[in-house]
Amino acid sequence: MLRYVIRRLLWLIPVLLCVSLLIYVLMDLAPGTVIDSMITEQMTPEDIEKLRQEYDLDKPVIYRYVKYMWGFFHGDLGKSQVTGLSVWDSFISRFPATLKLSLVSVVFGAVLAIPIGIFAAQRAGTIWDNLTTGFTLIGTSMPSFWLGLLLLILFAYKIQLFPAGGYQGPSSYVLPAITSGLMMTAITARQTRSSMLEVLRADYLRTARAKGVPERLVIRRHALKNAWIPILTTIGMGLSRFLAGSAVIETVFSWPGIGRLTVEAVSQRDVTLACGCVIMTSILYVIILLIVDLLYAFVDPRIRGKYASGSRKRKVTA
């Protein structure tokens, strides 16, 4: 198990090298550099040249990249080129906002999605199933900025029930959480439905019913537990995507999180900050998917057995 975790974490290294190189090259290809947004009317050419040298802009992009990654592998995410503040501090100061919204969205999404998915699966082929399928179809295909704006117009403008943006108080979570959660609800509900449908046909549910297990326990204890893995995967993917900070949702709702930080960094050509954000979110992404993988073992003893077999041979009796 431990070896598995370490192997997965080692995979982070090439992943990080790739995403950071990608960021560096893409931002280098974009017109303009970080100092272009700093130039003021009173600057002399010498000032500008000094700035260029300070940011190594007179050297090739690969030099800056290697320099940055050298620092990174020595535990230094660097300093924002625009503000001069530590990238790590900037990231950490913004992370709580994104984390809180992500958790609320995931909980909202999952709490709604799993019952909906089970409901639809149990009534497969009926009008109820069609309704939920319709709902998931809308949920997955609706662009989130559009849904966000619709909700804003309805609940912040017409009814004035929730704030139109910002990050204070529980009420400010409602609209962004619904907007991001709904997409996740739709995807998770669909996954739950198909995964439950598969399980509902399984022989062991017939065994359970033949034992006289009440229907709700058949679903909860016997079916859901077997359907968990794909559902968990969807939820985990959703969470890691939220944690990377949804630029769209954070922009629509003025949410001061990682998504906004990254967008601003890119628009100001702040390569170190953008790269730091992307590296951190990649790390989070990989770690969350790893946790989900480890949760598989928790949910499914067969997988647990597979992890264990590496260290200890199980007796299999014929």
């Binding site: 062991y204 017939r206 065994t207 033949a210 204890r221 537990k225 077997n226 067969r302």
Partner: peptide, 14 residues
Amino acid sequence: MIFQDPMTSLNPVL
């Protein structure tokens, strides 16, 4: 009832 296929009629996660 005892079912035909013992491979699939037991719940794998319990």
